[in-house]
Amino acid sequence: MMNEIFRKHLTETLGIDDVELQDELIAEYKRTFYDTLDKLKEVLPSGDCEQLRRLGHALKGCALNIGDLETKELSLNIENGGKANDVEICRVNIDGLIKQAANLE
């Protein structure tokens, strides 16, 4: 389901209609998603808000470019939480990303 959303975005917004290229980009996005989620889970216990902010910001950018709006919102909240030194907001949204990961499978 998510893949279809991604393909539509890549075709209509970014003009990338080559299926192989789409596959590569989707695969790379998922790698980025999981890597970033792992790092967020690692950093969260330490409460390093600056790092949380950076990770949220990076994932947000990627999500925007693949059309993953849900991830984009969650990442934005993590970024803002980090900026506001609010670890609890970050934790809640990281939980959201964990659930979102299931949608990406």
């Binding site: 890549l10 080559d18 290229l21 590569e24 980009l25 790379e28 790698r31 980025t32 950018g61 470019n65």
Partner: peptide, 13 residues
């Protein structure tokens, strides 16, 4: 972010 690099390169391919 490697993903961004791939996306931009694909856009301009």
């Amino acid at each position: 972010e490697k993903f961004i690099l791939l996306t931009v390169a694909a856009c301009l391919k």
